[in-house]
C-alpha cells in the first residue's frame, strides 16, 4: 500500500540493554530506549502523522465511516437526523463523536455553469505545540511516543477548557461517556503496527499516513507538481498548511490546500492559548498593584483627615479653656495653624 510507509517495530525495537547488577549506578546510556516499552509489533517511536492532499479528495466519506467503525463512535449523529442544507455535509463539524469530517466547499458562479468543488477531510492536527494539551488541568491530554496528542477518557473530567483552547475547533464532549474526545490517530492501531483506519480506507490516497519527515517530502513533491500545471490566473496558488514550523511548531496532520486556508475553515495564524496570557496577566498585575495603592492612599487620607479634625477639636477646646465664654478663638491663639 503506497501510503503506509512506516514499518512496524517488531524488528527495530531494541530490547533493554543489560543493566549492571548489585546496585551500581546505571549509566544513562544503558537506560532502555522508549521503543523497548512499546508492545511487540508497534511502530517505532518517531513522529507519525497524516498528510492530507485535498486536491485528490472525492468526498466519499469512507474516512468518516472507517473512523466511526474502528473507534466505536455512534453513527446516530447525536440523534440529529435532519439534513444540514450545507452541500453534501450532514455531519457538519468535528466533535466528540465525529473525529473525521469531510468538508464540502462549493465555488460556483451564480448559474452554476462554472466552478469547482473543494473537498477536505478534516481531523485533529496533532499540533507539535498543542493548545488543548497546554490548558488541560487534569493531565488527561498527553503527548504520545509518536508525537501525537491523545485524550485519556478515564482521566478527563469534562471541564471543557480544551474545547475553546483548540485553535481549529476539533474537540467536543462525547455525549456517550461525557468526556472530551477527538481523533487519537488510532493510537491503539499504531501499537499493533496498523495504520489509522481513515488512511487505510481512503481510496484516493488523499489521506496519507507515515513518518512526518517522509510525508513532508511527499507533500513538497506533490506541491511542485501541482504548481507546474496550468491553472486559471484568478485561482490562488496551491499551498501546504502546517507542514513547516511557522505556527504551533508545525502540525503532525498537515494539508495540501488548493485555496486560502480560510476557504477551508482553517485559521490563518492559529495561536497557542498561552500566547494571550502575558499581556492579560501583566495588565491585571499592574491593576492589582494600582488598586492596592489606591486603597493605601485612601486610608492615609482618612487618617490625615482624622488628625486634622482632632487638631481642630483640640484647638477649639484649648480656646474654650482659656476663655470659657468664647466658642471661636482668634487667629493669634491658634497653636497649630
Amino acid at each position: 500500500m503506497a501510503q503506509q510507509s512506516a514499518t512496524p517495530a517488531a524488528t527495530t525495537a531494541a530490547p533493554p540493554s543489560a543493566t549492571p547488577a548489585g546496585g551500581t549506578p546505571v549509566p544513562l546510556a544503558s537506560i532502555p530506549p522508549a521503543s523497548a516499552y512499546a508492545p511487540p509489533g508497534a511502530f517505532p517511536p518517531e513522529p507519525l502523522g497524516f498528510y492530507t492532499d485535498t486536491s485528490v479528495c472525492i468526498g466519499c466519506k469512507a474516512c468518516e465511516v472507517a473512523c466511526k467503525n474502528w473507534n466505536g463512535l455512534s453513527s446516530r449523529n447525536g440523534g440529529v437526523n435532519t439534513l444540514s442544507g450545507d452541500s453534501y455535509d450532514n455531519t457538519r463539524r468535528l466533535d466528540g463523536q465525529h473525529w473525521r469530517h469531510v468538508k464540502f466547499i462549493e465555488q460556483f458562479s451564480e448559474d452554476r455553469t462554472n466552478g469547482r468543488w473543494l473537498m477536505m477531510s478534516d481531523v485533529c492536527k496533532h499540533c507539535v505545540q498543542a493548545g488543548c494539551l497546554e490548558v488541560c488541568p487534569t493531565g488527561a491530554i498527553m503527548r504520545t511516543e509518536y508525537d501525537t496528542v491523545v485524550i485519556q477518557a478515564d482521566v478527563c473530567n469534562g471541564c471543557r477548557d480544551c474545547i475553546g483552547a483548540c485553535p481549529f475547533g476539533v474537540i467536543d464532549i462525547n455525549p456517550v461517556n461525557n468526556t472530551a474526545m477527538k481523533c487519537t490517530l488510532c493510537y491503539d492501531r499504531l501499537h499493533r503496527g496498523m495504520e489509522p483506519a481513515c488512511a487505510q480506507a481512503c481510496p484516493t490516497a488523499s489521506i496519507q499516513f507515515g513518518p512526518i519527515a517522509e510525508l513532508k517530502q511527499r507533500a513538497q513533491a506533490r506541491l511542485e507538481q501541482l504548481k507546474s500545471q496550468p491553472r486559471p490566473e484568478s485561482r490562488p496558488e496551491p499551498r501546504l498548511y502546517g507542514a513547516d514550523e511557522s505556527f504551533l511548531g508545525g502540525l503532525n496532520a498537515f494539508y495540501l490546500l488548493d485555496d486560502e486556508p480560510e476557504v477551508y475553515g482553517l485559521p490563518n495564524h492559529p495561536a497557542l492559548p498561552s500566547q494571550h496570557l502575558p499581556a492579560n496577566v501583566g495588565l491585571a498585575a499592574v491593576g492589582a498593584v494600582g488598586v492596592g495603592l489606591l486603597g493605601l492612599l485612601g486610608l492615609r487620607k482618612r487618617r490625615m483627615d482624622e488628625f486634622a479634625a482632632e487638631a481642630r477639636a483640640e484647638q477649639i477646646s484649648d480656646r474654650g479653656a482659656t476663655d470659657p465664654g468664647m466658642t471661636l478663638g482668634s487667629d493669634e491663639e491658634a497653636p497649630h495653624a
Binding site: E134, V135, D161, G164, A165, P270, P273, H276, N280, G287
Partner: peptide
C-alpha cells in the same frame, strides 16, 4: 480573566484587558 484569555475564543483571546476588567 486569565482562564478566558488562555483559549482561542472570540473576545476572550482577542482582548488582553479582560483579566484587569474582572479584577
Amino acid at each position: 480573566g486569565g482562564v478566558l484569555a488562555a483559549t482561542n475564543r472570540p473576545l476572550w483571546a482577542d482582548s488582553p484587558w479582560i483579566g484587569l476588567l474582572f479584577l
